[in-house]
Design a binder for these strands. Sequence first.
DNA 1: ATAATTGCGGTCTAATAAGACCGCAGTTGA
DNA 2: TCAACTGCGGTCTTATTAGACCGCAATTAT
Lengths: 77, 77
Amino acid sequence: MIRQSDKGNLKKLGANIKKLREAKNLSLRELSYACDIDNSKISKIEKGQINITFTTILQLAKALEISPSELLMTEYD
Amino acid sequence: MIRQSDKGNLKKLGANIKKLREAKNLSLRELSYACDIDNSKISKIEKGQINITFTTILQLAKALEISPSELLMTEYD
DNA sequence: ATAATTGCGGTCTAATAAGACCGCAGTTGA
DNA sequence: TCAACTGCGGTCTTATTAGACCGCAATTAT
């Protein structure tokens, strides 16, 4: 595993999440509270360090008040 | 883990993937070959039995020739 | 009939996400 | 000056995905 092209895609996803979080003026801890995901984990997600599951995507989307598909709205390789 | 509401969402995702696969007239093994995911795993995904990761979503979307966000184009709880 | 295809369930190992927690260094602002 | 907040990195355990493989029962050709 740990395909090389995946790393870039994970970073893109993370960057998108960070952008959306900042657009709502939320700190990591605030978003953490809103979606019940540890703030350090969100930090890792935004830096593309972990490969989150579908349900984690749903949690984040809900807290960011957007649709799950909007969360993935980016170009991937 | 294994939140109860997640089960329903996983089934919805699976149903959507199955619909998309059938729309392209692909068997499990054909899709399996196209995205390099074991056919038995795809079967489990379609039945909502596993919580796939982001990269698996990308693989499926690519093989189904749709965008990742389109793959999630459904309503979730 | 019979051979191939298909969906699906189960098995086993290794890798890793989930989840919870700690603490630091660098802002920010009272 | 000091307290609060912020991003972020690391740790530890447990649950689960990933990945590869086997085989059956039912369906679908040939």
